[in-house]
Computed example of a mutant assay.
Amino acid sequence: MSSTATDWLATQFNTASWTVNQVCIPILFFVGIIGWTLNTITFSRPSLRSNSCATYFHASSWANLCVLFWSPFIYAVGNWSGYRLPARSILFCKIRIYFITMFCHTSVAFLLLACGDRFMLCSRNANRRRLCHVRIAYKMIIITIIICALLPLYIPLKYNRLSVVSNLCIIDIDFLIFDITYKSTIWAIIPPSLMLTLGSLTIYSLKQNARQIANIRIQIHSKDRQLVAMLIGQITLYITTTWPYVAMMIYNVLTQNILPSHKSVTRNAIETFALSFSANFFLYLYNAISFLIYTLTAPSFRRELFLALVPRFIRQQFHNRIGATTTLQQAENRTGKVSYIRSRAQVMIE
């Protein structure tokens, strides 16, 4: 490849890295804030507050907010202002990495709890189904936060080196293999394995409950089925966004002894882009767009969001307008009996 083509390719990757850092990451943060706001509003609805799985989703939204603050927000502020506090204070750098790791663990753990909750709900064992309660969910959330706060305590103790490239704190060389193994296991191996196992068992149980076996059939409400769909969407998103970062992390370990001066300009540009995209943007896509997954996979979530955002008088006008053009409408009178009204002109609610 000629030097001109090489320089052009390196320039393109450098431009892509700049776009990721200066444009994509701030957009990711603002999208995450909007999604967190709408998630919080929706999961605070009375119909979802009483559901244990929705409680785990709600808690996961708060953990995602903390991740977005400690990573994309601080990173974007440093790029825009030119004052990168993590590069100037090793103490702040340690605290930042600790909280990013802690809240990433917490968010994933809540998703695992939601998987377990749906699996137990489909069980034929009544004692297991009783565990799918909001009070149990609150206790499990507190226990999970404590465990996730303890797991990455090695970070403030062992992140003492400064990177030659970024001037950020990095793991001590004698703990590098441990750090890579820990993150690969906790992020990329254990959670996806448990998610896929529990998700598969939940889907199998739903299919089994759809059949009449020995005159015993567990009734699963439509909203609970839609929560399973939301869960499957979150699992798919998590696995998709995690593995590129893990692959890049392993690559950095394998090539750590090769100095940047011994690499070509194009290779350095490609590695910089891959690291920026996988570690600073794509990894946190899971934390930012959960709202879109919920909206696309669950009609009940869209309905609750509609009820939460649209004022009641507007909903009533909308309902009347739809009812006026519907050939078959259902109305409930004061006695609770259901009557069917065939009319194109008006809706009559007794």
Score class of each variant (00 low, 15 high):
Tyr75Phe: 13
Asn125Ser: 15
Thr55Ser: 12
Ile90Thr: 08
Asn51Ala: 07
Thr106Gly: 01
Tyr83Glu: 12
Asp117Gln: 12
Ile41Ala: 09
Tyr75Gly: 07
Phe57Ala: 03
Leu111Phe: 07
Leu111Lys: 01
Thr55Glu: 08
Arg124Asn: 13
Gly82Asp: 07
Phe57Gly: 02
Asn79Glu: 11
Ser47Ala: 15
Ala59Pro: 05
Gly78His: 03
Thr40Trp: 15
Arg124Ala: 08
Phe43Arg: 03
Leu65Gly: 01
Phe110Leu: 10
Arg88Tyr: 14
Tyr56Lys: 01
Cys93His: 11
Pro86Thr: 08
Arg124Glu: 12
Phe92His: 03
Met102Ile: 05
Cys115Ser: 07
Arg118Pro: 03
Ile74Leu: 13
Leu91Phe: 15
Asn51Pro: 09
Ser44Pro: 03
Gly116Lys: 10
Gly116Glu: 07
Tyr75His: 10
Arg118Ala: 04
Ile41Leu: 14
Ala63Asp: 00
Leu65Arg: 00
Leu68Val: 06
Tyr75Trp: 09
Leu65Asn: 03
Leu48Lys: 04
Pro46Tyr: 10
Pro86Arg: 01
Asn64Met: 06
Ser81His: 07
Ser47Leu: 15
Cys66Thr: 06
Ala63Tyr: 00
Ser61Cys: 03
Thr101Met: 14
Phe57His: 09
Thr106Ile: 01
Met120Lys: 09
Phe43Asp: 04
Arg49Tyr: 09
Ala126Val: 14
Pro86Phe: 03
Ser107Gly: 08
Cys115Ile: 01
Trp80Pro: 02
Phe57Ile: 05
Met120Pro: 00
Ala76Cys: 10
Ala59Leu: 07
Pro46Leu: 09
Ile41Arg: 11
Ser89Gly: 12
Ile74Arg: 04
Phe69Tyr: 06
Ser44Tyr: 12
Ser50Asp: 07
Ser89Gln: 12
His58Met: 07
Ala76Gly: 08
Phe103Thr: 08
Ser89Ala: 13
Thr55Ala: 11
Arg124Phe: 12
Asn64Cys: 14
Leu121Gly: 05
Val67Ile: 12
Ala54Asp: 02
Leu112Arg: 00
Val108Asp: 00
Val67Tyr: 01
Phe99Asp: 07
Met120Gln: 09
Leu112Met: 08
Ser71Tyr: 05
Cys122Ile: 08
Ala87Glu: 13
Ser61Thr: 10
Ser107His: 01
Arg49Cys: 14
Arg96Ser: 13
Ala87Thr: 12
Cys66Met: 14
Pro86Trp: 05
Ala114Arg: 02
Ile97Glu: 10
Ser47Trp: 14
Met102Ser: 10
Tyr98Pro: 06
Leu65Glu: 02
Ile100Pro: 00
Ala54Lys: 05
Pro72Phe: 03
Ala87Arg: 08
Phe92Pro: 05
Arg88Ala: 15
Val108Asn: 03
His58Arg: 06
Ala59Phe: 10
Ile97Phe: 09
Phe43Trp: 14
Ala63Pro: 05
Phe73Lys: 00
